[in-house]
């Protein structure tokens, strides 16, 4: 599904990713863990195509495509979804219109018919209900006046509606209470299947109790320094990153 090979990237003059390699097969969920500043969020932004990051080396293949050659909207149309750590507020943009515009843009890119307002609202209301989100979140402006938890749930709602093949969740668990955490995990688990993969960027073991990964990778100074099964997350929770990072250095 996703193959990252020796990826290097910088923001302005600062090198962040320094030869990161990762294989994420279809149908699997991998977790990326690591200390602050190790490059976790940068990886998400680079995969989604943020212009502020300059790729200086390596390659990324998504399906059969050269991901790095694609515009952000083309990546989304190909099935990539980044759940933002700090979702943007869009004053003046209605949440339901925003979601319908996004869904229809992706449907258009696939040569599918667009959904009208009625058909879309039926779909959106059903997904919102599954995520225990109040209906009025669809009527409000995108993320404006949303609490931190509501913003994160709105990201998961977008993911549920857009049905990506690959979801990159950038610390979607941060700032969530245990109930919200379970809702987010359930949202991802609901999409799990042979055609869906996820890259879960997190600081904490907590989310991984509900969203059990197939593999866990530890990122340090822009490279994967260790990989293992779900038990690696528990080891990190118990002992911290210091040992892992020191071993690798």
């Amino acid at each position: 599904m996703l193959s990252v090979n020796n990826l290097a990237a910088r923001i302005e003059e600062k090198e962040i990713l320094r030869g990161l390699s990762l294989d994420l097969p279809a149908g699997q969920v991998h977790a990326i863990m690591g200390p602050n500043g190790s490059g976790k969020s940068t990886l998400g932004y680079v995969l989604a195509g943020h212009e502020g990051y300059e790729v200086t080396g390596g390659s990324v293949t998504f399906g059969d495509a050269d991901l790095l050659a694609m515009e952000p909207e083309a990546r989304a149309a190909a099935g990539l979804f980044l759940a933002f750590q700090a979702p943007l507020e869009l004053p003046g943009v209605n949440n339901a219109n925003f979601l319908r515009t996004a869904l229809n843009a992706i449907r258009r890119a696939h040569g599918e018919a667009e959904l009208d307002a009625v058909g879309f609202l039926r779909l959106a209301r059903a997904e919102a209900k599954r995520l225990a989100m109040p209906d009025d979140m669809l009527k409000r402006n995108v993320n404006v006046g949303f609490s931190g938890g509501e913003k994160k749930r709105n990201e998961v709602l977008q993911m549920a509606i857009l049905r990506p093949k690959l979801a990159v969740l950038d610390e979607t668990d941060s700032g969530l209470d245990i109930d919200a955490l379970r809702i987010v995990a359930d949202g991802v688990n609901a999409l799990r299947g042979p055609e869906f993969s996820a890259l879960v960027i997190t600081h904490h073991q907590r989310l991984l109790d509900h969203l059990v990964p197939d593999r866990v990778h530890v990122l340090s100074k822009g490279r994967i320094v260790r990989s293992g099964g779900p038990e690696l997350a528990r080891e990190l929770e118990a002992n911290g990153y210091a040992g892992v990072v020191a071993d690798a250095a």
């Binding site: 515009e71 943009v93 515009t101 996004a102």
Partner: peptide
């Protein structure tokens, strides 16, 4: 630029994303 990227990352083409932000 960040709002524009957010919209594009959801599949909204650049020109349409700009139009949405101008209307907003």
């Amino acid at each position: 630029a960040e709002q524009l990227f957010y919209l594009r990352s959801r599949g909204v083409p650049d020109a349409e994303a700009r139009a949405i932000l101008v209307r907003a």
